[in-house]
């Protein structure tokens, strides 16, 4: 973990209630896709955690959805604004066990961390399939970015306005899947585990106090006892969760 000041370099709306923010500053604490950062918002006591969508030397990208007052206020932040941020938090996705043909499954704001993961897996020469789930066509984002990385992308929307009509599980093709990686709401992750064969890694979300392990606010009960989503996670192997 590293505390640093990020400057907003770019901030744009990319889908309904969904925003892309490029932050410039020290990204040296990030080592794995699926890690997150924790930003202080003016006027709010607790920081807001966001998974990193992608990062490179000196720049980190996040994508967030307006879900409450804090994220609503964020939409007004302008380029040039400074943000006090804790970076390089948590343990991300492990690509060393992916096998030849991993499947990446994302639901809504669970999609962003899969982009850096996809990039890393493609760089390792893997055949990557991606299944993305959204509510409606105007909420879809990043599908083209995964395609540009050479992944085979399937989209599902609840109302059928884009891709397959249904849940993200309807867009999942587990045939030849060597390992699945999933991020999204808990109900979605459990639904995936109910149908997915084989090994998988799941990125969880939970309300956090600190984001670096101190408050034990974001505990998940696992086969290895209570673990912290922010510290031992947010990515866990499915067998650790027992899902």
């Amino acid at each position: 973990m590293k505390q640093t000041t990020y400057v907003i370099a770019e901030h744009t709306k990319i889908a309904r209630q969904t925003y892309f923010m490029r932050l410039s500053g020290d990204t040296s604490a990030f080592t794995q896709p699926g890690q997150f950062l924790n930003i202080t918002l003016p006027g709010y006591y607790l920081r807001r955690p966001f998974s990193i969508c992608d990062w490179r030397m000196g720049e980190a990208d996040i994508i967030y959805k307006v879900l409450g007052e804090g994220t609503k206020d964020m939409t007004a932040f302008e380029a040039g604004m400074e943000l006090d941020t804790l970076t390089g938090l948590g343990n991300g996705f492990d690509t060393s066990t992916s096998g030849e043909s991993p499947l990446l499954i994302g639901g809504g704001v669970g999609v962003p961390p899969l982009l850096a993961l996809c990039k890393e897996l493609r760089a390792q020469g893997r055949q990557v399939k991606v299944a993305l789930g959204f509510g409606s066509a105007d909420e879809v984002f990043l599908a083209d970015a995964f395609q540009a990385l050479g992944a085979e992308v399937a989209v599902a929307t609840m109302d059928g306005t884009a891709g397959i009509k249904g849940l993200v599980t309807d867009a999942c093709d587990f045939k030849n899947c060597s390992q699945f990686y999933a991020c999204g709401p808990t109900a979605m992750l459990k639904a995936i585990c109910a149908v997915a064969p084989g090994p998988g890694q799941l990125s969880l979300e939970e309300r956090m106090g600190c984001g670096f392990g101190a408050c034990v606010g974001c505990t998940v009960f696992t086969t290895e006892g209570p673990l912290r989503v922010c510290k031992e996670g947010p990515v866990f192997k499915r067998e650790v969760l027992g899902w």
């Binding site: 709010y44 006591y45 607790l46 939970e206 309300r207 956090m208 106090g209 408050c215 034990v216 606010g217 974001c218 505990t219 998940v220 009960f221 006892g225 209570p226």
Partner: peptide, 23 residues
């Protein structure tokens, strides 16, 4: 002690609530 179920944390003006439950 495993502590309480989540969510264990809530926010308010100038502070927070916790219900960790002595994990």
């Amino acid at each position: 002690r495993e502590g309480n179920p989540t969510p264990r944390i809530a926010e308010c003006y100038a502070g927070m609530l916790n219900a960790v439950g002595l994990q």
